[in-house]
C-alpha cells in the first residue's frame, strides 16, 4: 500500500443535510502511483460530486480522503493543491489570463515562483502540449481542442503528481478528443503522474488502467476495461465492443471478452485465414 497516492476511505456526502438520501455513501478505493483511473457512471450517479470532493471544493460528511498519506483538510489543502491539477468541463469558463501564456502562468504566480523559473516552466509546458506558437494569443479565439491543451499546459507547468479530469473532454469533437488522449498517454508514460478521469465517455475510460463504475452513489464495479466493458449498456460501450456485440448478435462466434480496436482487427484478420 506504500504506493497509494489517493486513498478514499468510507466517504459519504449529501447536499441537503436534512435529506435522507445520500449522494455518495461509504465509498472506498485506492489509486496507486502512476495509475490512470476512470470513474464512470450515468447522470446522477454522484461522479461530479466525487470530483469536487477529491479537489477539496466540497467537504465530506463522513470519511477521509488521503493524498500521499495526508488527510485532505483545511490545513493541508493548499500544500496538496500545488501537487494536484484539476481540469473542469467547460473550456470557455476556465481562463483567467488574457493571453495563453498568462493563463498558463497563473498557478505559478500563486506558488510565488521567481520570474525566470516561470518563464522556463511556461515555455516547456506549452511546447509539451504543442501550443508554443500561440503563447501571445487570446485563449477565447482558440478552437475547443486548443483551449483544452492550454488548460493542460497550465496544469503541467505546476509539475503536478496528480491530475483530475472532470468531464474534461466531453465537449470536444471526436478527433480533437483522440488527439488529446494520445497526449494524455504520453504524459502518463513517465510513470510519475497519477491521473483520474471522471467521464461518461467510454473511449476515454478504455485508456485507463482501471475503471470504477458508480451507480446511485455507490461503487457498483471496479476493474480493468476488459472486466468492466462487457457489462455496460449498449450506448455506453466503446465502438469495438459495440461491433463485437453486433457480430455476435448476427450469429457470428467471437471471443466472449472485450477487445480493443487493434485486438478486434487482429482477430478478424486471423479469422479470415482459418476459414
Amino acid at each position: 500500500m506504500g504506493d497509494a497516492v489517493i486513498e478514499v476511505k468510507d466517504l459519504s456526502f449529501r447536499y441537503n443535510k436534512s435529506e435522507e438520501k445520500a449522494v455518495l455513501s461509504s465509498l472506498s478505493f485506492t489509486v496507486n502511483k502512476g495509475e490512470w483511473i476512470a470513474i464512470v457512471g450515468p447522470n446522477g450517479s454522484g461522479k461530479s460530486t466525487l470530483a469536487n470532493l477529491l479537489c477539496g471544493l466540497l467537504k465530506p460528511d463522513q470519511g477521509t480522503i488521503y493524498i500521499k498519506g495526508k488527510p485532505l483538510n483545511d490545513e493541508t489543502i493548499w500544500e496538496i493543491r500545488e501537487k494536484m491539477g484539476v481540469i473542469f468541463q467547460n473550456p470557455d469558463h476556465q481562463f483567467i489570463g488574457t493571453t495563453v501564456q498568462d493563463d498558463v502562468a497563473f498557478s505559478l504566480e500563486n506558488m510565488n515562483l521567481p520570474y525566470e523559473e516561470m518563464q522556463r516552466r511556461v515555455d516547456r509546458a506549452l511546447r509539451q502540449v504543442g501550443m508554443a506558437e500561440y503563447r501571445e494569443k487570446d485563449p477565447s479565439y482558440l478552437s475547443g481542442g486548443q483551449k483544452r491543451r492550454v488548460s493542460i499546459a497550465g496544469i503541467l507547468a505546476m509539475e503536478p503528481e496528480i491530475i483530475i479530469f472532470d468531464e474534461a473532454f466531453t465537449m470536444l469533437d471526436p478527433k480533437s478528443r483522440r488527439e488529446l488522449f494520445s497526449l494524455l498517454k504520453e504524459m502518463q508514460a513517465s510513470g510519475q503522474l497519477t491521473m483520474v478521469s471522471i467521464t461518461h465517455d467510454m473511449e476515454e475510460a478504455a485508456l485507463a488502467d482501471r475503471i470504477i463504475v458508480l451507480n446511485k452513489g455507490k461503487i457498483s464495479r471496479i476493474g480493468t476495461p476488459g472486466e468492466v466493458f462487457p457489462e455496460t449498456t449498449e450506448l455506453l460501450a466503446p465502438f469495438s465492443e459495440r461491433l463485437r456485440r453486433l457480430l455476435i448478435q448476427k450469429g457470428r462466434r467471437l471471443p466472449d471478452k472485450y477487445m480493443t480496436e487493434t485486438e478486434l482487427i487482429e482477430w478478424l484478420w486471423k479469422y479470415n485465414f482459418t476459414t
Binding site: F239, R242, L243, L246, L247, K250, R252, L254, L268, W269, Y271, N272, T275
Partner: peptide, 15 residues
C-alpha cells in the same frame, strides 16, 4: 455505421 460494417464484414467472410 456499425450495422453496415458488421454486414459487410460477414458478407466478405471476415467474421
Amino acid at each position: 455505421t456499425e450495422e453496415e460494417l458488421a454486414d459487410v464484414l460477414i458478407e466478405a467472410g471476415y467474421a
